[in-house]
Simulated assay, not measured.
Amino acid sequence: MDAGVFDHWVKRSLLDVESALEVWVPESAPAGLGEAMRYAVLGAGKRLRPLLVLAAAEAVNGQREAALRAACAVELIHAYSLAHDDMPCMDNDVLRRGKPTLHVKYGEAQAMLAGDAMQALAFDVLTPDTGVAPALQARLCRLLARASGYDGMAGGQAIDLASVGKPLDEAQLRDMHRRKTGVLLQASVLMGAACGDVSDVAWQSLSDYGAAIGLAFQVVDDILDVTQDSEVLGKTAGKDQDSNKPTYVSVLGLEAARAYALQLRDQAHKALAASGLADTAWLSLLADKVVERDN
């Protein structure tokens, strides 16, 4: 696959997502709330989760309207989680996506409300009056809710906060990262797949692919936290080490963590090969992008 073709697909997909978010995230929300929401979600970030939704939807010839809504919904959930995670009561970070975090820019109360509003808006976006069948709306909402809640992102963050300064073995660390980061990435793939007709074999293969890249993403994040500076990362480098948080680097060592990320990428490729789907090129290249990124 020509890298230029992939880059063109990424640019077109990102433009579609950004244009839709511009429409669906209301500037008119009262008392500056809309401004804070738009600051948190527009014009920044890798948009990996939306890209996974759209790539999976294309692999199964899925409905474009539903896939675009799912892509925006998962990005809204991601943005809300970052807004809350960065607050002083949690990770207490001041830099996100190369700019001041939401609570630094707008205050803690507004950041909390903007996060709440983005979480609710995600499910509003998934349930339009027309254009997406009610059964598909329900399925997409269920996938996103489960990935966001106690058994997914929120549960992983709870484990993360409770693990500061405590030794974790590799299995415990993997479970924390699976919940905190991996499950939402996996759900992004499955939400895209749900927009089309997919066999049980393909669904399981895409689920396995999503699980592998979800964990790989966090392993690479742990590596970058100790190998890159804040300017490159767009967030505070060395924060996990300074906060005495367990990471894949602290548990396995740097070289073993790098090897594990490559192993997970290979698992993702094998899962795609087992799916029986005719064209998984975008998903394959996104798996490479997850592991080879520098921020």
Rank of each mutant, 00 (worst) to 15 (best):
A194W: 04
D169T: 05
G165N: 00
Q186W: 02
D169L: 04
L143F: 14
V132Q: 03
P128H: 06
L144W: 13
S148G: 05
L190A: 14
R174Y: 05
L190H: 03
G196K: 04
P134L: 02
A162C: 06
V125D: 04
A194M: 06
G182S: 07
A133P: 05
V132K: 02
A147E: 08
Q157D: 05
V132R: 07
V125A: 09
L136M: 12
P167I: 05
L140A: 10
G196V: 08
S163W: 00
R142P: 01
C141A: 13
Q157G: 07
I159D: 05
A138L: 15
R174T: 15
Q186M: 15
S188W: 10
F123V: 15
Q137R: 08
A145F: 12
L144V: 10
A187S: 15
C195K: 07
L185V: 14
L136N: 06
A122T: 03
R142H: 10
T130E: 15
D129S: 12
L168Q: 10
V164S: 04
A145E: 01
G182Y: 00
S148W: 01
A158H: 02
L168D: 11
D197Y: 07
A187I: 10
D197C: 14
T130W: 06
A133I: 01
V125H: 06
S163C: 12
A162I: 09
T181F: 07
V198R: 01
S163P: 07
K180A: 11
A133N: 09
K180C: 00
L143G: 08
C195D: 06
A158E: 02
A135D: 14
A187Y: 07
G131I: 06
A122H: 03
M153E: 01
I159T: 03
A194Y: 06
A193D: 13
K180Q: 14
P167V: 01
D151K: 13
L144C: 09
G152V: 02
I159F: 01
R174W: 05
Q172S: 13
D160C: 08
S188I: 10
P134G: 00
L168K: 13
Q137H: 01
R179H: 04
R146M: 02
A145P: 03
A158R: 08
S188L: 14
Q137A: 04
L136S: 11
P134T: 08
G149F: 12
G165S: 00
A193Q: 07
E170C: 07
C195Q: 12
D160Y: 07
D129K: 14
M153R: 01
V132W: 00
T127I: 03
C141N: 09
A122G: 10
L168E: 14
T127P: 02
D151F: 01
S163Y: 00
T130A: 12
K166S: 00
A138W: 12
V189E: 09
Q186H: 03
R174A: 15
A122M: 06
R142M: 15
A122K: 07
G152I: 05
Q186L: 15
A135H: 11
A194G: 01
P128E: 02
